[in-house]
């Protein structure tokens, strides 16, 4: 298998860390992984994006122009990446703040209400895990167990009590996908 994914949104939405957890989850399953962020001042308030590749074989370029999956969390990102999804690929977007969705018909498009779910959960920090849950429902490229293992590995010990909350967020995200 090989999945080429871009995740894009505002800085502060947890785009880079969501990519990091996804990459780490791939590592838990002995996959080859790369995580390539846009870096610099745009991380602080502007748009941010990260390319994550999971593969069973050696990964060549960490930089891509087309993707199997695009997860976009604001209008600018949707405008930028919707056309870069490979035909037959997947576009997932959060409905919050999107006024002009993609009109493509050759890809699978999923609108999710992750921000709404975040409000219900009263935990803004769960947003990116909800989105990740939705992504894994559409494309089960790594197991939930691997994600939890990755969290355990990457979070400092003092934050391990947050893992159940993250698991719940993942499940909520999965429930947002309705075929």
């Amino acid at each position: 298998m090989k999945e080429e994914i871009v995740i894009a949104g505002f800085g502060g939405q947890g785009v880079l860390s969501m990519g990091k957890i996804l990459a780490y989850s791939g590592l838990m399953e002995d996959k080859e992984v790369t995580w390539m962020p846009s870096y610099g001042p745009e991380q602080r308030g502007g748009t941010a994006n990260v390319t994550v590749i999971l593969s069973d074989t050696r990964i060549s370029s960490p930089v891509l122009n087309t993707y199997d999956v695009a997860v976009v969390l604001n209008q600018q990102s949707l405008d930028k990446f919707a056309d870069k999804v490979k035909p037959g690929g997947v576009l997932i977007y959060d409905n919050y703040g999107i006024h002009t969705p993609s009109t493509r018909t050759d890809i699978r498009i999923y609108k999710i209400e992750a921000m709404e779910a975040t409000f219900e959960l009263k935990n803004a920090k769960a947003f990116n895990m909800i989105v990740l849950g939705a992504l894994l429902k559409v494309k089960p490229m790594v197991s939930v167990e691997s994600v939890l293992k990755a969290l355990k590995k990457t979070l400092p010990e003092r934050h391990h009590h947050l893992i159940p909350m993250n698991e719940e967020a993942l499940r909520i995200g999965m429930s947002l996908i309705k075929e």
Partner: peptide, 9 residues
């Protein structure tokens, strides 16, 4: 910057 900022195994 690419090799510096990229994460890999």
């Amino acid at each position: 910057g690419l090799v510096g900022q990229m994460m890999e195994k």
